[in-house]
Amino acid sequence: MNDALWYLARGTGVTSLVLLTVVVALGIANRAGRPAFGLPRFGVAQVHRDASLLAVGFVLVHVISLFFDVYAQLELFDLIVPFGATYRPMWTGLGTLAVDLLIALVGTSLLRHRLGLRAWRVTHWLAYACWPLAFAHALGSGSDAGAWWLRTVAGACLVAVVAAVTWRLSTSARATVLSGDTR
């Protein structure tokens, strides 16, 4: 039973990282202002939203399974407040922080029309902190950190996000030159 929980936690953790990577890469790419991946822009945005909600689901299973896991010894407290865990407090804490930010990001996005554009945009910048935290947590906290397959997955995630950032910076620099609009 305990092994099952442990496998579940690892599996959902890695899946969460992949989903968050998809969310971040699409979010960045769609902001570049021209259609990406041959999809219409609203389609990319829809996948961005759906993938983020899916990621929340996987993160939830990840956290709950660890809560009942005897090795991890997480207290309810540790699910919200970082760096208090007994098991690898540093690496676990990064994951807790990422979860907090994820809650803030998804919550504000669901309430976007009530919050107004400015408040939503400001909180959405937290995504640039959330993903690196989740990434570091995956590499440092997991018992699979040294495994070739995790390294491969993590490497692919990193490449995806870096590629999206590069693409966005290149297109927005060009758009600025074209329109003279620096905003």
Binding site: G33, P35, P40, R41, F42, G43, A45, R183
Partner: peptide, 12 residues
Amino acid sequence: TACQGRGHCTEL
């Protein structure tokens, strides 16, 4: 004042 021509509405 808010629109930046992102193009979602013209697609939808």
